[in-house]
Amino acid sequence: MSAQDAKERAHDARVYQVGLVLALVLSAVPFGAVALGLLPASGLLWMIAICAIVQILVHFRCFLHIDLSSNHRHDLQLILFSVCIVILMAGGTLWVIGNQRAMMM
């Protein structure tokens, strides 16, 4: 292996290591907080949501290797469009069905 390759390999390996550590921490924090009941319910829910979103971003960056560089434009556009559609579909479902529930209660 050339020195260049070795350097790249070390870099790539570090990305996975950083990803794993971040993922474990971002999982351990909400799990621990819920298990120990560290915050009031609403605070816990916010924390779970934020940790989950950050962790998903970490997964995309470190494991799925999606970043803002130009040769990933297609993949990135696809993912962002999908997220929009998912927000419309899943969010719309929760809104519509929740609204019906409220009207019937």
């Binding site: 999982s27 909400p30 799990f31 819920v34 319910a41 816990l44 829910l45 779970i48 949501a49 940790c51 989950a52 962790q55 998903i56 997964h59």
Partner: peptide, 15 residues
């Protein structure tokens, strides 16, 4: 799975 443990398990145990 990150979505599942957050939305299902943790949220369920809090809510």
């Amino acid at each position: 799975w990150v979505g599942i443990f957050s939305v299902v398990y943790l949220q369920g145990l809090v809510g």
